[in-house]
Write a protein that binds this DNA or RNA. Structure first.
Lengths: 227, 227, 227, 227
DNA sequence: TATGAATGAGGTTTCATTCAT
DNA sequence: CATGAATGAAACCTCATTCAT
């Protein structure tokens, strides 16, 4: 008396009715898409108004979802902020890696120009990380969790710059007794300042940094003051 | 039944107490001192907890004043935040001016080292501007008032660096065709990155920047890529 | 493209899956078993956390069922609470009936001891009615439905005690002019106090009540104060 | 030029103006009265609707105060509930103490009758503790804080009953080998049952308990079953 | 029949600000 | 000028319930 029903993925037999469709009610992809929908909405709000000025209601409205729906995917506003933060601070590695890996290493002004250009492309048009980053830095000031978070993201970046500085020195492009760590720190230090000038003062572009670094690198040896 | 108290200028009667002396009209100096008392309290709170996590109640308590008293001197929390912000972003000019004014100009690595050392002294030990600055940057992202504020403070600083770069070039320490604007921007860009590394990553000091800049300035001319 | 599946009574087509077998119409027994599964889960939660602190989500999780499944069997949380409540307050009759039915009636201290012992067995180890009961009393304070519910359960119990008191009097174990109603009420009143002392104060057992009643029953006639 | 202003309590001199009135802006009594106003409102709500069904908004409305005002006096709803709870469970000691202290001790039925009458007077008309008590018991089931709270209130009451039982025995009104602890527990156990019957079943009064206890105390020695 | 994602009203609590005293 | 009690809008979050699949 059991009818021949096609059995396949998602069609299972159970003890009450004979066959029920056990397909996930919504696909895994749908869930992930919802998460993204929420994160996109949140990011848009955060870029527009900032973390603190954005209320959960703002996010609900922007996402077109109810409170409950959002809280199904993120258990607190903090969790959303952290997601966006992580995302914002982690978008830098790729380009740097490629630049660092080149042989011979590109000169610093070129490396920096290319990195800034990459950040502008992936930041201003898509992630607006230039607006988000300072907010994350700000959070990091009083929340050791965020601070560690950023530190963890920054350390590999720092390491890449150090490798780059070593390559530079090994290729004879830096004095043999120069400290790759100091060079790494100095180049790393340029990034936040570039971002802030871009947003607050304007009038700065990747080329500015390139030309500035180029000029500094070609100052005459006459005026030294190393340790 | 009203006691015979001399009534005269400054002596007023009110309904609660019988007489209060409304006379000496608290000195101008006293007013300013009260303002400072409030600002000191606010700054302490902001450094300890951040702008957003600090409630007005926190400030009242820290200042040992009532709500009404504080609101007599500042008409909103925003006004207090702005005061502290201005203060925090304006503490940089002095040392830079002295450095820039020297003839011949000190080499970049020395100029930067001395500036950072000055900021550490006046920042970390007294103002903790390293903690406040990122919060101000963060505010600036979404409040054009703050942004202009900072821009206005930054422009003279930028101008000083440009003057310095010109001096450098005129003294033959930079290529004659180099762009002082680009050099100025580049040196200015180092400051926020130094502050952030100091707080978040640690392991950076004025000497680090000095050594890094020194090494970069002594890279061989072999690897150029100017425009 | 529709697979050729026999269509017949109980085999229906729906829009999601193609065919589901709607046949055996899950047995009545199965339905009842599902109800029990849910009630068991709910009771466990209620004992663990209380009615109000238990969310429907808690019950879903404990039962291993979905929201929809639970709501198919109970149309609201209130209905579940009521089910558990009824169950909790109705578990007392059986033992009492047996005790009351005995001839000659056991003396009060023995009747009470046996009843308490019975409640402990069926309460503490299985139903934990000692924890549930006060919650039900609490609900009864502001919900006349619950109040009537309890009253309806309590009235037969009360009647049994009254019968018992009459038997006692008829057997010459109480003064001939004593009021069975008053005795019934008094004995009935001992139960909640026993439960609460057991949970809150500890140090009470069926024997305590037996000894206490025994002592009271053997006080000397010298000190009377009847109406 | 300093005017002769009456100095007295609350009139102080300070450095700005010469005299300011330092009277507490509102009197200590006013503060306490506000607390009572809130507690009265809360109690009314709790009696009317129960702890859980009463929202803070209900309390604000009943008290005629704003949210902020209430939260100035109580830092959470829990704190309010606890205040009312403590109050409700602690109103029982006085009358019992007086009864217990009498020499010779009144017979149990009289002691109990008088205590119940006292509770009715101070409970039903003023505190409605008959409605509140079961709610507190209910809370105690899952909150050890409440449980300890109640236990702490109950222990002295229990001790008083034990003293009473000892007095009873010493006065020859209980068998010399009877256990005062068991008698104490038994009499204590009657109270909750009386309260619940009063609210749920009705038809019980202090006299009921008196007559019931009287009858039990005059049962014939023929039917014993002590240990 | 079962699922669980989605809803949205409503909960408690905070906090910048005012104003009667 | 100073006080601090009071305000009340708005914040974050929960949870009983529904309904498309």
């Amino acid at each position: 008396m059991t009818p021949s029903v096609p059995e396949g993925p998602g069609i299972v037999k159970n003890e009450y009715s004979f066959y029920i469709v056990d397909m996930p009610r919504v696909s895994e992809a749908h869930l992930e898409q919802r998460r993204q929908q929420i994160l996109d909405a949140a990011r848009a709000c955060f870029i527009r108004k900032g973390f603190h000025e954005t209320s959960m209601q703002d996010i609900f409205a922007e996402a077109g979802l109810s409170a409950g729906a959002v809280y199904r995917y993120f258990k607190s506003k903090t969790e959303i902020v952290e997601s966006i933060s992580s995302e914002a601070i982690s978008m830098m590695g790729g380009a740097l890696y490629e630049i660092v890996a080149e042989h011979p290493p590109p000169p610093p002004e070129e490396a920096m120009e290319r990195l800034m250009a990459h950040m502008l492309e992936n930041g201003e048009s898509y992630l607006n990380s230039f607006t988000l980053a300072p907010q994350v830095w700000s959070l990091a000031m009083h929340d050791s969790g965020y601070r560690n978070n950023i530190a963890n993201v920054l350390r590999p970046v720092h390491a890449l710059w150090t490798t780059y500085a070593e390559n530079l020195r090994d290729a004879g492009m830096l004095p043999p007794d120069s400290d790759p760590e100091a060079v790494s720190r100095t180049l790393l230090a340029l990034v936040p300042g570039f971002m802030l000038q871009r947003v607050i003062l304007g009038g700065i572009s990747p080329e500015t940094l390139r030309d500035g670094l180029y000029a500094l690198r070609h100052s005459t040896a006459a005026t030294d003051s190393s340790s």
